[in-house]
């Protein structure tokens, strides 16, 4: 494929004599959803920080085929400013980048049923709503690449499925490229076009799987796909989740 937007070659990262990432190499193509899975503390968030440009202390080479400033980063926490209203929170990215996104954000808030909370403060809305606001704040800037660091981790299961559905539809509708970090195998299979499995520290890539489900619709129906269990077992084995007999 020639629509590569990122090329990562031999990426290494050490911190305080501890070797975190070891020889990570992979490419990302436009419009792909990549899920990175691995055990806790294996360096997934570090990898995302490096790709986002927040951490530039690494060895290796990352080539961006787009404007690096146009990366949207969604964190583990919704990271809403408690002293700003929901609408102002959604607008903060646009304000910082000095863009006029008032109409886009009003439209998105309406679309995701947050319009009636425009003037409320974050402590008045649920965890799922907060995550939606964070998502609106991120996508309103039309990022070329969306980075999501365990964005659903703090949500209850039902809300999690609904937000996954929203995120999936937003990414696909807008032909965005996304890297999602998750612990959840079913989340990874149901969302991703490609899953990258990282080993324990120092992390290297154990395997990269193209996820080929028969009829990709949304993360909930993707879980019912007949190939879902096949990938679940493959990834589970890579992460040593099942006993070896």
């Amino acid at each position: 494929m020639n629509n590569k937007i990122i090329e990562i070659k031999n990426l290494k990262k050490s911190f305080n004599d501890s070797h975190i990432l070891d020889n990570i190499s992979f490419n990302i193509n436009k419009g792909e959803i990549i899920c990175i899975i691995g055990t806790s503390g294996c360096g997934k968030s570090t990898l995302l920080n490096i790709i986002s440009g927040l951490d530039d202390d690494y060895e290796g080479n990352i080539k961006y085929y787009f404007d690096k400033n146009n990366i949207g980063y969604m964190l583990q926490e919704p990271a809403l400013f408690p002293w700003l209203s929901i609408k102002k929170n959604a607008l903060i990215g646009a304000n910082i980048k000095k863009l006029n996104k008032e109409n886009d954000i009003s439209h998105l808030l309406k679309k995701y049923k947050l319009e009636e909370h425009n003037n409320d403060y974050p402590d008045k809305i649920s965890g799922g709503m907060k995550q939606r606001v964070a998502l609106i704040r991120t996508i309103s800037l039309n990022p070329e690449l969306l980075l999501l660091d365990e964005p659903f981790a703090a949500l209850d299961y039902q809300t999690r499925l609904n937000i996954e559905k929203d995120v999936y539809s937003i990414i696909k509708e807008n032909n965005l490229t996304a890297i999602i970090i998750t612990h959840d195998l079913s989340e990874a299979i149901s969302l991703a076009d490609k899953v990258i499995v990282l080993s324990n520290k120092p992390s290297h890539i154990k395997n990269i799987y193209d996820i080929n489900l028969d009829d990709k619709k949304d993360p909930i129906s993707n879980r019912k796909d007949k190939n879902f269990t096949y990938y679940y077992e493959l990834l589970g084995k890579d992460l040593d989740l099942f006993e070896n007999k």
């Binding site: 927040l54 980063y73 990271a79 400013f81």
Partner: peptide, 25 residues
């Protein structure tokens, strides 16, 4: 809040913007 600071860093906020939107409030 380290997440809010990380968010502003990811948005390439200037020092003044960090003070205005996060540090002082």
């Amino acid at each position: 809040n380290k997440y809010l600071l990380k968010l502003l860093n990811s948005l390439n906020a200037s020092r003044f913007q960090k003070l205005k939107y996060l540090i002082v409030p």
